[in-house]
Design a protein around this nucleic acid. Structure first.
Lengths: 213, 213
DNA sequence: GCCACAATCAGACCAAAGTCGAAGGCCTGA
DNA sequence: TCAGGCCTTCGACTTTGGTCTGATTGTGGC
């Protein structure tokens, strides 16, 4: 690390942001630190500063919808290492975070020293996104085939948006959105938008028991 | 407030604890600040210092089991005002927190200034009603209006079934299913099948919430 | 008996979802 | 440089979803 590193801290809780920022500022003097509270702000910040050395990402942020946000960011900015900072300790969440290309996973219950240490390790390249090893036939594997634009469409589908709304938000025609949806459904191996939403939400919500009438 | 106040901060995340402690330390110079990471530690701390002026309590802590921890603490130490600090924004959680005797409810997304302000208000004896005093009808409330057959239809919708499949499984015509779906959507206050599935799955799976810090 | 309501269905109708084919832009390797 | 592949875009078309009107049947309560 020749020059001072630059960080992007993404968390919707000001407390957490401040705590991380001050800890990183002390551990890495002169470091550039940007903040984001929503997925949209993360994207905007990465657009402005594509050379960010590490993104500290909270999973529970507006617009993230769980793990789908990681995949979206990874497909848009594959160079930026993502360090997931989450309170979720479920092994399946951790594993899927890695499947989607996270460089590290830090439990929010960890001490600031541990967090700083992990960040440093990522900066040194000691920890990197594990290669897309042979994964079981999981939904995550199928989902990894989606293109950036398709992820954007899926992210909005998951929020319950209709094709028309998605088209407006993405600035494209409704026909385009429909085409993307068609490809998404085929790649995910489902037959309808509703099933796609259920599966994709399952990424953020493991252990989904069917409702009994 | 003649003397400096004493606080007990209960949160299992060191980051949050430190952030709250430093904010309160600055806002209330000379204040006594104790920490706790589990329900047991909260009880021990209150045993040692029954004159605590305010307990800042996180809902998602080991041993808390959600809102029942509030009731337990209230029954053991009725004089200690409890300020719930949680990431859960669900109206029902907020409402129940008040039902169990919380003096205030702070969203973790709030700024430190807001938090300090709320704590100060509680110290002054202002147990003020939350902005969410007029709670909107919850999804669960709306869902309770469904008839048994409508529940069956919704259960199959949640599994991703199409109207035709639902009709076959229930042994009725597709027109009937459509009629039910129309009523379900209206009762749930959503505009599409996909939105209904999203809402209903969020209701049936509270396991989705523990992911939040 | 009367009333309210759940459940069933038909037919018409409009909106949304989804499929198919095709065009243009961009990158890469021959 | 050109061919081939991929992403993105879109229009035209088909299918499904959802609403509305209206109707029949059965059930339980007053």
């Amino acid at each position: 690390m020749v020059t001072a590193p630059s960080f992007l801290i993404a968390d919707d809780h000001p407390m957490v942001r401040d705590a991380l920022a001050s800890a990183l500022g002390q551990a890495f003097p002169g470091a550039g630190i940007a903040m984001a509270a929503t997925l949209g702000q993360v994207q905007a910040a990465l657009e402005r500063e594509p050379e960010t050395d590490a993104l500290l990402l909270d999973l529970d942020m507006p617009g993230m919808e769980g793990l789908t946000g990681i995949a979206l960011l990874r497909s848009e900015y594959p160079i930026v290492p993502i360090i997931v900072v989450s309170a979720a300790r479920e092994p399946i969440v951790v594993r899927r975070a890695y499947e989607f290309g996270a460089s590290a996973y830090i439990d929010k219950s960890a001490s600031l020293e541990e967090i700083v240490g992990t960040v440093g390790a990522v900066l040194e390249g000691e920890i990197f996104a594990p290669p897309e090893a042979e994964l079981p036939d999981s939904f995550a594997q199928r989902a990894a085939q989606l293109t950036p634009q398709q992820w954007r469409v899926l992210a909005l589908m998951i929020q319950g948006d209709q094709n028309k709304q998605i088209a407006h938000k993405l600035g494209v025609g409704e026909a385009t959105v429909k085409a993307h949806v068609t490809v998404i459904l085929r790649k995910l191996g489902v037959r309808s938008r509703t099933q796609a939403v259920i599966e994709a939400r399952g990424l953020a919500i493991p252990a989904a028991e069917p409702v009994r009438p």
